[in-house]
Design a protein around this nucleic acid. Structure first.
Length: 291
DNA sequence: CGTTACACCTGAGGGC
DNA sequence: TGCCCTCAGGTGTAAC
């Protein structure tokens, strides 16, 4: 679910609720591949520490600790990072959603999907990482150490230039959209914003990468940045799970031109939006506007 | 090396 | 109601 805009909105809204607070306790679920660092080790390295900075690279959040360690967080498909005072139906299972009235929703109750909960010495709101599908990740990086997941990331999507994309397209027969999703080329673009960016650039996602011109590479990168920036402005895309740290929904799902609009008319020309599978992911495009 | 298939999970929604 | 299928903002790995 979360792509660069959702991660960046999470970073901006979580930072003021996290920085400078001393961690008093850490609660987790049982060990699973969600934890790249074991719950036991997380607890021992986090307790007593303070987060001094919250950064982002691509879709990763990087929480720097006063110990010099770095906590890496990835939201995967269904990850949710929020404060304990957040109120949203998205933070509940469907049954809880329908059986409770809004006023009964008061007070988030940690459930089996609540994998990480940080408590603080100031007694204020806990910070919670919930993830139904567990494709999210948490990794504690000891001071001075790096990680292959970070090392292989390409230029951040907001900093990318047309030339960065162009370089990756040479001698590549793979669809241009598949390259956009490759985090080692440009970091941060996911399925929604790739489709939306390509629509804005008027390039069909299926186009062979080596047949995309330099001018089109410029246009694709600029268009992707435009939709990513707009995604941030509107608070991200809340389609099924994504929720902002304070519990609010994003608004970008209402501005989609092609993503998940199969069978609906193109908002530009009226042609029917098409859905095709590329590299095991759905791609959506307008066959008339995108060539 | 580039490309593709699949695996990792859970839940929602549709057809029968 | 149940069952079985497909689909979902991601990414690491194995196999050609």
């Amino acid at each position: 679910m979360p792509e660069l805009p959702e991660v960046e909105v999470t970073r901006r809204e979580l930072a003021p609720r996290l920085l400078g607070r001393r961690i008093s306790a850490v609660h987790t679920t049982a060990p699973s591949y969600f934890f790249l660092t074991s719950p036991a080790r997380l607890k021992s390295r986090l307790k007593g520490r303070t987060v001094t900075d919250l950064g982002r690279r691509g879709k990763y959040l990087l929480a720097r600790l006063d110990s010099g360690d770095m906590l890496l967080l990835h939201l995967g498909m269904t990850g949710q990072l929020f404060t304990a005072q957040a109120r949203s139906p998205r933070l509940l299972s469907a049954t809880a959603r329908t059986s409770l009235t809004p006023r009964e929703l008061a007070g988030f109750k940690p459930d089996r999907h609540t994998h990480l909960r940080l408590c603080f010495t100031d007694g204020g709101d806990d910070v919670i990482f919930r993830d139904v599908r567990k494709f999210g990740k948490v990794l504690l990086l000891p001071a001075g150490r790096s990680d292959a997941r970070l090392d292989k990331l390409g230029v951040d999507a907001l900093q990318a230039r047309g030339a960065d994309l162009l370089k990756a397209t040479r001698k590549r027969r793979t669809p241009i959209k598949t390259l956009l999703l490759d985090q080692s080329v440009i970091a941060g673009i996911g399925n929604i914003y790739a489709d939306e960016g390509l629509f804005l650039a008027r390039v069909r996602p299926t186009r062979r990468a080596d047949r995309v011109s330099p001018a089109e590479c410029d246009r694709i990168v600029e268009s992707c940045q435009a939709v990513l920036r707009r995604g941030i402005e509107t608070g991200g895309s809340s389609i099924s799970d994504y929720v902002r740290p304070e519990g609010g929904d994003g608004g970008y799902q209402d501005e989609r031109k092609v993503y998940a609009r199969e069978g609906l008319p193109c908002l530009n020309c009226g042609e029917t939006i098409v859905r095709r599978v590329l590299g095991q992911r759905s791609a959506h495009y307008c066959p008339r506007c995108q060539r």
